[in-house]
Amino acid sequence: MGHESTAGWHRQVRLPSERGASRTVTDELLEQLGAHGWSAEEVFAIHLAAEEAIVNAIVHGNKLDPAKCVAVLCEVSTNHVKIEVEDEGDGFDPAQVPDCTLEERLDVPSGRGVMLMRSFMTRIEYNAKGNAVVLEKRREANAN
């Protein structure tokens, strides 16, 4: 996955397709977001988006196959965060995920991850195959 090298911190890891593996990278991501001055609300939003993307890749993408890994790239600077997550699965079409906010789907217990990522990040883009996603959040410049 190509990326701009504008970040103050970056980390590239390959996670095993195991439940709970996201902690390996999210703990450090949270620490770096704080160190780069992101607010508690922004940290919550980025944490949620990263968690949803990585869990989707492990569970739905790689289907917990121990032979497959999830590649994660995180970049954090004071005004920009980029997270790339790629699995080794067959991919999916995010446009086909039903709208979880429809009245008749409100009590369906799954299918909210993509919507939350879209809502909390500035940009979210899947590749054509649907097995890799780029999440970006930009912070508005402060007047001071």
């Binding site: 949620l48 968690e51 949803e52 869990v55 009590d107 217990p109 799954s110 909210r112 991850g113 939350l116």
Partner: peptide, 13 residues
């Protein structure tokens, strides 16, 4: 302090 969509699923059930 934090909740993800997996926990939302449990609350819905």
């Amino acid at each position: 302090e934090f909740i993800s969509s997996a926990t939302l699923g449990k609350l819905i059930v």
